[in-house]
Amino acid sequence: MTELADQIRLQRHLAATAARRQGVALAALATSPLPVRPTVTPKARYLRMAEEYSLTADEHLINGCHVHVGVESADEGVAVLDRIRPWLPPLLALSANSPFWQGTDSGYASYRRQVVGRWPSSGPTELFGTAAAYRAAIAAMLDSGAILDEGMVYFDARLSCRYPTIEIRIADVCLLIDDAVLVATLVAALVETAARAWRAGEAASPVRTSQLKLATWRAARSGLRHELVHPVTGHPAPAETVVRALLDHTTPVLADTGDLVPVEGLLLGVLKRGNGAEQQWEIHQRTGDLSQVVAHAVARTLES
């Protein structure tokens, strides 16, 4: 965790230095609080996406926290994907950092999630069972013509098409370095917990994809402010109860890696001060000025 924090801090400082050379500043936000007009990267693939998906592509100025975790095989990767499904919404609630959209309070802790949801391939997945079934599902999506290539498979978690990893994509980019480290460490522990369950012959939870969509929507709407959908019971529960259930679920792995105590500390910090969305809301409520929200984010981006 210390090494990861150092790497994130270094990369943020490098990016901030490059930004200053261009007369701008770096802010780790999942959406822009201020009104913006995004531009399209002038590459053939992105230009084609802009043409095909119109306003959905035109407005796609969002930042997520994608965590890659190595797996030994595609079979193990799919087994993990099947078993982490109910536990992804709490990660979104923890990381939520996008309450404002085009100068307006969206009312969502993660409005980025709503923007991602416009894409035809986004969201939680069904149970696949095997790597072959996963590949068949991807092939069917490509055959439909609704997506252009495998890079447009915007599942909340997927097998990477570039690396021997699974890629968990549900989280907002985190305002604080500590929160990014917390999310990444919980993701790694969640993946290992699922891999151990698979190796032990434990079946994946049969929770329906429709239920997962509801849990994800609730996490995006509420963040840590109100109730979330409990990953085990499927019923509403206080956000802290749900987040602590995620910690309990991954405790054996965190204890084995020596990360349990620091993760508990970082988690307590988020629950005490709030996620990025809570901090943005607090600054805006106090000042009534979205530019102050941005200034606060610029200052906090490099802090830990």
Rank of each mutant, 00 (worst) to 15 (best):
Thr17Gln: 12
Arg300Met: 12
Arg48Phe: 03
Gly70Cys: 12
Gly123Val: 04
Leu148Val: 11
Glu202Ile: 13
Asp156His: 11
Thr130Val: 09
Ser98His: 04
Gly145Phe: 07
Leu159Lys: 04
Glu150Tyr: 01
Ile168Cys: 10
Ser106His: 01
Asp178His: 09
Met152Trp: 02
Tyr53His: 12
Val67Ile: 15
Pro124Val: 05
Gln280Arg: 03
Arg158Glu: 04
Arg113Ile: 00
Ala200Glu: 15
Tyr46Lys: 07
Met1Leu: 14
Arg9Thr: 15
Thr2Trp: 08
Val153Ala: 07
Glu303Leu: 14
Glu3Ile: 10
Ala245Cys: 07
Trp119Asn: 02
Asp82Pro: 13
Leu302His: 06
Ala133Gly: 09
Leu246Val: 05
Ala237Arg: 03
Ser222Leu: 00
Ala239Thr: 10
Ser144Arg: 08
His235Gln: 15
Ala132Val: 11
Ala93His: 12
Asp256Glu: 15
Val187Trp: 06
Thr39Lys: 07
Asp156Thr: 05
Val153Pro: 01
Arg199Thr: 11
Asp172Ile: 07
Lys213Ile: 08
Ala188Lys: 15
Arg286Gly: 04
Asp289Val: 10
Gly234Thr: 07
Gln22Thr: 06
Pro238Gln: 12
Gly276Ala: 06
Leu4Pro: 06
Asp172Gln: 08
Val71His: 08
Ser121Ala: 15
Pro89Lys: 11
Arg20Tyr: 00
Leu4Cys: 06
Pro33Thr: 00
His66Asn: 05
Val181Trp: 10
Ala25Arg: 15
Ala50Phe: 04
Trp101Asp: 00
Thr165Gln: 06
Ala25Asn: 07
Leu92Ala: 09
Gly117Val: 04
Ser95Met: 09
Ala180Arg: 02
Leu186Ile: 05
Leu268Glu: 15
Leu47Asn: 08
Ala16Ser: 13
Glu3Trp: 07
Thr287Trp: 02
Glu278Ser: 12
Gln280Lys: 04
Asp143Arg: 14
Asp6Thr: 11
Val40His: 06
Val294Tyr: 00
Met1Ala: 13
Val261Ala: 15
His66Thr: 02
Ala200Gly: 09
Ala189Glu: 05
Asp82Ile: 12
Leu94Pro: 07
Trp281Met: 11
Ile170Glu: 07
Leu212Asp: 03
Trp119Leu: 09
Pro124Trp: 03
Thr216Leu: 14
Val69Ile: 14
Ser106Pro: 02
Val24Leu: 04
Thr185Met: 05
Pro42Asn: 09
Ala44Thr: 14
